[in-house]
Nucleic acid binder design. Structure first.
Length: 262
DNA sequence: TTGTGTTTTATTGCCTCC
DNA sequence: GGAGGCAATAAAACACAA
């Protein structure tokens, strides 16, 4: 509980002995019991005619002028030094305790508003991130679907034992697909930061997925493995269940399903 | 007029600082 | 231990729709 002294003592006493709890006692013309009034007399030891008439009034809202002045003072400094409190109280015809309470409540309102603003900013940020995440999920699904189709075609063609010309066709189909999506902003719309794929070329340079894949195809053409026909393993690709696993910068794709001998 | 929700003023209890 | 701050809460005052 706050401790009170001097002119605050009467307010404090009122709070300790609220009039409503004296309903069953003899009530005087001010609405308070004789016992309660006598107690006030004993404590203050002086004429209470003015002070009690102020205190015993019903709660009133502060006037427009009082609120404006308090607001003005609050803007300068939202903490009250004792001297400033007394001066403000005298200036506005209030009890120093009323000024202190007003500042306390005002700080509470300020804090509440600030929290609401912070919450709003965080919510906006969350919504934007969620949207980005959804877009990336859609990109992932589209790319996975494209990849699956290409794998199926490749598997069919390799089963027929003739893949040199068709491979080139598939590479350009894949490249066109990626290129179209890039041009329409459907792919890499976040500046490629989230979907870059590093090639495992010897010089360590990075490249986008289309070029890397094309290089791999071209490498595979020049590669000669005597007595060993190329055997893709399409089912292993499904193990790359998440977008991040497949396209993140932290883990370059191994493409081991293309090159099982790797 | 009245019920209901919101705002403002004030109290209470706990905590920290000096 | 006193002074003052804060969170939670009460209660009066006010706004407003039905």
């Amino acid at each position: 509980m706050e401790q009170f002294s001097g002119s605050d003592s009467l307010d404090a006493l009122i709070s300790i002995c609220p009039p409503k709890e004296k309903k069953d006692e003899q009530i005087n013309t001010h609405g308070y019991s004789e016992e309660f009034r006598a107690m006030l007399d004993r404590i203050n030891g002086e004429d209470l005619s003015y002070e009690t008439s102020q205190v015993l009034e019903k709660r009133r809202r502060l006037s427009l002028y009082q609120v404006k002045e308090l607001e003005r003072s609050f803007e300068v400094e939202n903490r009250l030094e004792p001297d400033r409190k007394v001066n403000l109280a005298e200036e506005l015809g209030l009890q120093p305790r009323q000024v202190a309470i007003w500042f306390q409540n005002r700080r509470t309102r300020l804090k509440t508003k600030q929290l609401q603003r912070d919450f709003s900013l965080l919510k906006d940020s969350y919504d934007a991130l969620k949207l980005d995440c959804n877009n990336l999920e859609q990109e992932k699904e589209a790319l996975t679907s494209t990849l699956r189709e290409l794998k199926e075609k490749l598997y069919r063609q390799s089963s027929e034992g003739n893949h040199s010309v068709e491979e080139e066709s598939l590479i350009s189909e894949f490249d066109n697909n990626v290129s179209d999506r890039r041009q329409t902003g459907d792919l890499f719309e976040n500046g490629e930061k989230a979907v870059r794929v590093y090639s495992d070329s010897k010089d360590g340079s990075s490249d986008c997925v289309s070029n890397s894949l094309a290089d791999r195809f071209r490498d595979s053409e020049s590669r000669e493995v005597p007595g060993k026909a190329y055997q893709p393993q399409p089912t292993r690709m499904e193990e790359q269940s998440t977008y991040c696993n497949f396209f993140s910068v932290d883990q370059a794709p191994t493409l081991h399903w293309y090159f099982p001998e790797q």
